[in-house]
Design a protein around this nucleic acid. Structure first.
Length: 572
DNA sequence: CGCTGTAGCGCG
DNA sequence: AAAGCGCGCTACAGCG
């Protein structure tokens, strides 16, 4: 099916006081504008969504798309003006970003928890409040025109990035809408086993109480509060444990008998406050965990999350992620994504060669670059993070000899950052410019009458910034790879044949009747799919990884192997 | 009392 | 006492 000249290539979505206002822009430049009653909008979008879908231009996908999803409407392609504004405004690949820098109304935080809001509020394109990006027809059109002018003149990589970012915004909303299937009973059973019985009226669970008593007894201090750092620290000192903080790593080096139960208590306490009954009742509804993903929430382009701590779910709790009856989970993560990305983006064939196969770290050992897998890990992480001391400081130079091209790339990025410059990812997301404060500190140190402390401060902040820009190019390009992976997974899932098994998993909105992405965390995904499509979906995930590699790195000879399993639960 | 800052720890 | 990047969340401390 080919796109005819009058089929819209873009549909701009806006809202005046009363109606939705859609502007359909065709490939040949013809346009027409249509007003749609608010209540009719999802159905209208559905009508215009077809195999050669137009790209839906949204002022803010996070704000608008849940309305469609709640009505069972999905769109294939989008352009998110808020997210793309942020990218294009700062990108060093853009010649004239000034037009965007003046449009400050587009620089707002993403909408908070859109689907928690009453349904009428969902039909809000931002015309009512200063919290949101603009949503009225004139502003949407003006911003679209600015961005389109920039993109028409830009590098293809930047266009790929805006497409990937916008698709990510669709996926984030879809994943929240679908939710991650969560087995509350399994979770509660685990809590009972590790934390103990919860008193009926609330309060500390039994095993935590026992551990705390044990600690207090061994410290010879029957009443001390373990939850107050100053009080605990004083109690430790009184017991002769001369630590400077109550942190885990420092306590681990002590031999006092109270240490073991104390560390155990801290671990339980963390689980209790972060991911126990309160977390369950707040975040798991109808057997689904629905975190708020925040695409582009991290400067590097990684996603952030808000609410529910989606990016910090303890690995042990993943066993509570359980497929609906007759359905399966596809659980996949990329082995050593960031070092592979570094090898590929720098074109370092030696590093690519060492990375070939399942385990990059073993590759370094096999080539005699380091002695053990653990050393390899420390060296590689140290190279990407800018370690200069300790074991990493000792090992990184070996990497510099073995992989000069890859190391030159991160070393250059660090130098640029130290000099106050800007670095960019492969697809053109650029680091933020040095802050005024940072620049002032540097300037103060070059004054003729600068003292040694201001020089020291300047050096330190320069190095800090260097480590940030060093890591930025790798973390940010890895985030781009992951976005491409996600988008290709989504596309592949949409092309799967219909299931012959149970179509609708129990909790569902219409689109949950199809295999779907259910979770994403930097370099791993969880899919929830009907059992008969599990193998096909697993292939989709693998092929998507290969496609992502090709999209970013062309024919560069490096693969991105996955650890992938098909299972009923996501635990180990 | 609410607010803000920080320590500590979970994730990649 | 983090070394060495990027995050979010909770509880406590300390403030007005």
């Amino acid at each position: 099916m080919s796109l005819s000249a009058t089929d819209p290539a873009w549909i701009l979505n806006a809202r005046n006081g009363v109606n939705y206002v859609a502007t359909l822009i065709s490939a040949d430049g013809t346009e027409r504008t249509q007003q749609i009653a608010v209540a009719d909008w999802p159905a209208w979008v559905q009508q215009h969504e077809h195999p050669n879908s137009p790209r839906w231009v949204f002022n803010d996908t996070a704000l608008v798309y849940p309305t469609l999803l709640n009505a069972g409407v999905r769109v294939a392609r989008a352009h998110d003006l808020r997210l793309c504004h942020a990218i294009l405004r700062d990108s060093a690949f853009v010649a004239g970003g000034e037009s965007l820098r003046h449009a400050t109304a587009w620089e707002v935080a993403p909408a908070a928890e859109p689907s928690e809001r009453p349904i009428e509020a969902l039909f809000d394109f931002g015309v009512q409040g200063p919290r949101h990006v603009p949503g009225d027809p004139a502003d949407v059109r003006a911003e679209f025109d600015r961005q389109r002018a920039i993109l028409d003149a830009a590098d293809g990589r930047l266009r790929l990035l805006t497409v990937a970012e916008s698709t990510g915004a669709l996926i984030a909303a879809e994943m929240r809408s679908a939710g991650l299937p969560w087995d509350v009973l399994a979770h509660e059973q685990m809590l009972a086993e590790t934390l103990g019985v919860r008193p009926p009226g609330g309060g500390t669970p039994s095993i935590m109480v026992q551990r705390a008593d044990e600690v207090r007894q061994l410290l010879g201090d029957p009443t001390v509060s373990l939850d107050s750092q100053p009080k605990l620290l004083r109690a430790l000192h009184r017991a002769g444990i001369m630590v400077e903080s109550t942190s885990k790593w420092e306590l681990e080096e002590q031999t006092h008998p109270a240490i073991e139960p104390l560390l155990e208590y801290k671990k339980l306490s963390r689980l209790y406050s972060a991911n126990a009954w309160a977390w369950l009742s707040e975040w798991v509804r109808d057997g689904r965990f629905r975190p708020v993903y925040v695409p582009g929430g991290v400067v590097t382009g990684r996603w952030a999350s808000s609410g529910g701590g989606a990016l910090q779910i303890p690995r042990a709790l993943r066993a509570a992620v359980r497929a609906a009856p007759g359905w399966r989970l596809i659980v996949a993560d990329v082995a050593q994504l960031e070092p592979r990305v570094l090898a590929a983006m720098s074109g370092d064939l030696a590093m690519a060669d060492a990375a070939r196969g399942q385990d990059l770290y073993s590759g370094l050992v096999d080539r005699g670059i380091v002695a053990t897998r653990q050393e390899a890990k420390i060296a590689v992480l140290g190279a990407m993070y800018g370690s200069t001391t300790g074991e990493a400081g000792r090992l990184v130079p070996r990497l510099r000899r073995a992989f000069p091209q890859a190391m030159a790339m991160v070393d250059d990025a660090a130098q640029t950052g130290e000099d106050g410059g800007i670095v960019s990812t492969l697809l053109g997301r650029s680091s933020p410019p040095a802050s005024d404060e940072w620049t002032a500190v540097q300037r103060a140190a070059t004054d003729a009458d600068a003292d040694s402390s201001s020089e020291q401060r300047a050096r330190r902040s320069a190095r800090d910034r260097g480590r940030f820009t060093r890591n930025f190019i790798v973390q940010g390009t890895a985030a781009e790879w992951a976005l491409a992976w996600l988008a290709e997974i989504r596309r592949g899932l949409a092309a799967l044949p219909e299931t012959t098994g149970q179509k609708t998993e129990p909790s569902g909105a219409a689109f949950q009747a199809v295999p779907h992405l259910a979770f994403f965390l930097h370099d791993e995904v969880i899919l929830h799919v009907p059992g008969d499509l599990a193998d096909a979906a697993a292939d989709v995930v693998r092929q998507a990884a290969a496609r992502a590699a090709t999209l970013l790195f062309g024919t560069f000879p490096l693969d991105f192997p996955l650890d992938l399993k098909i299972a009923e639960n996501a635990g180990k």
